[in-house]
Design a protein around this nucleic acid. Structure first.
Lengths: 79, 79
DNA sequence: AGTATGCGTCACGTCAACTTGACATGTCAA
DNA sequence: TTGACATGTCAAGTTGACGTGACGCATACT
């Protein structure tokens, strides 16, 4: 794998979710790639999710929340 | 607004969520337009959400779940 | 009959969700 | 130093999320 990149930005989000995802991912000792593989998306998608204002689909959000052993509300509902 | 239409289909979903959204909406005595307005989307989006296999964004899902007084997991996590 | 409401379809447009790929940086170990 | 690993940026492409507007079709109510 390795080195990917891209632009994936939204305007619907507020960025707070990204920090929560990142924090929870680190708590579990997962790399972005680990999370990406577990959630079935590319690493770039995870990067965008954590760093940018990004609005994933419900299904992706559910897979990420599941992988991080938490809920969609806890990660994205915080506002 | 009134009478809308359009094509909004996905392949990520399984259709089960649509039935749950519809059932919950009816329980609360809301019309599709009511839910659409409350969630800040068009009626067509609600139609697609209920009838088709459709993958809304997390934020839309959260607003719909909130309006329907339930959770994202309850509506889309059922499988 | 006419009219209004609720639901769905057809058709088309815009922008974002997600992709792949190459490159840069910093850290840690051999 | 060399190199692997983790994270991030820049760029460009495909598909789908969501919008708008018009139409069909029931089921009401008047």
């Amino acid at each position: 794998m390795g080195r990917q990149g891209g632009s994936v930005r939204a305007d619907t989000a507020d960025g707070a979710a990204g920090e929560l995802v990142r924090a929870r991912r680190r708590e579990l000792g997962l790399t972005q790639q680990d999370l990406a593989s577990a959630a079935g998306v590319s690493r770039q998608t995870i990067i965008s999710m954590e760093t940018g204002d990004y609005a994933p689909s419900v299904y992706l959000a559910l897979r990420v929340a599941g992988t991080l052993e938490t809920t969609v509300e806890a990660l994205w509902g915080a506002g």
